[in-house]
Simulated assay, not measured.
Amino acid sequence: MPVTIEEKLDALRNPAIYGNAAGEVKAVETHMSWVFLVGDEVYKIKKPVHFPFVDFTALEAREHNCREEVHLNRRLAPDVYLGVVALVRRADGFLALGGPGEAVDWLVRMRRLPAENMLSAVLIAGGADGITADRLTRVLADFYRKAERSPLSPQEHVQCFESQQAQNRQVLCHRDFDVDAQAIRRVLNRIDECLHALRPLIEARVAAGRFVEGHGDLRPEHVCLTEPITIIDCLEFSYLLRLVDPFEEIAFLGMECAFLGVPEIGRELFARLGVALNDTIAPELYQFYSAFRAAMRARMALGHLVYGPATNRAAWEHKTDRYIALAGHFLAMPELAAVSIRGM
């Protein structure tokens, strides 16, 4: 008889499953996973969900994703990702982590990081400065220099942007939610205009070999300002979304810092990364990357309501509107506004 997700979660909430030394277990639910904080370690189990962008309904898919998560995240967090462990049903019917028995699910096992050292927490506390930007730039520049170059053509990369924009429209134009529909339409239309106008710049970046296999989800809550800096939770389930211009990832991180009320960090990272990589992009392309990522994050926020039963509906609607407003802010920057008009 199959083991239900409720039975699995009940077992993982029990300290006994982690061994005699385990103390209190704290369970945290995310959009696609359940995370269990146990002392100095973290265990993550994937939900058996099926979204347009990922399908975890099969046990084999969840196992594969766990192994990909460990493999890919060891690029920037080699000492954090400890491995993959099976949740097994023993001969006596009880569930256990590892050991003999039938594997009924798989978990990622990690070392727990200090919450107060996450960049998001440091930003909120007002502790980020130029030294922080310098340290982070050195880590990211080294990562991008060593990263695999994208195998896609310039046209294929533009098609990836167009595909993501189509998904933005599909989700954000739902009429069932209390969001600013007029602002959403305005932002999405402007993104279409800017993507058309800036297509030659994007294609030139790809042709010059500047697109790499990056992190894919570079947000402040994924950056831990330990020594050395550790960056976790890359976008393991989509190779295409990990193929990025390094400045696009920095724009994403800067946009998220601005969302937390600290926009200057993004500007500092942009300038420092250009020096470190001996590279740069036009200001209007950087602003476009920022706006595009803000629209994608608005889509992710509203997607919690579109694709599943999320609690606190008003909070997700408010978050959607905030990201759309931030996208509008970047689109209204003088460099990008001028390009948009010329490209029409």
Score class of each variant (00 low, 15 high):
21 A>H: 11
23 G>H: 11
39 G>K: 05
40 D>V: 01
46 K>S: 03
47 K>F: 15
49 V>T: 10
52 P>L: 09
53 F>W: 15
60 E>Q: 14
65 N>D: 15
67 R>L: 10
79 D>H: 14
87 L>C: 13
88 V>M: 07
95 L>K: 11
96 A>R: 12
102 E>T: 15
102 E>N: 11
104 V>E: 08
108 V>K: 11
110 M>Q: 15
111 R>M: 10
120 S>G: 02
121 A>M: 11
122 V>T: 06
126 G>T: 06
127 G>W: 01
134 D>M: 07
136 L>N: 00
139 V>D: 00
140 L>N: 02
144 Y>A: 00
146 K>P: 07
159 Q>N: 07
161 F>T: 04
162 E>T: 06
163 S>W: 09
164 Q>F: 11
166 A>Y: 03
170 Q>H: 13
170 Q>D: 12
177 F>W: 14
180 D>P: 07
181 A>N: 07
185 R>D: 12
188 L>H: 01
189 N>S: 10
192 D>K: 09
193 E>Q: 15
196 H>P: 00
196 H>T: 13
207 A>T: 04
209 G>E: 09
212 V>K: 14
214 G>N: 08
227 E>W: 05
234 C>Q: 08
236 E>T: 02
242 R>W: 12
253 L>T: 04
253 L>M: 14
257 C>H: 06
258 A>L: 07
260 L>A: 11
264 E>W: 11
265 I>L: 15
274 G>F: 10
277 L>D: 06
278 N>T: 06
278 N>G: 14
285 L>G: 00
285 L>Q: 02
286 Y>D: 09
287 Q>C: 13
290 S>D: 02
294 A>I: 02
296 M>K: 10
298 A>V: 10
303 G>T: 02
305 L>F: 05
305 L>P: 01
311 T>P: 00
315 A>N: 09
315 A>L: 11
318 H>Q: 14
319 K>F: 09
333 M>K: 15
341 I>K: 15
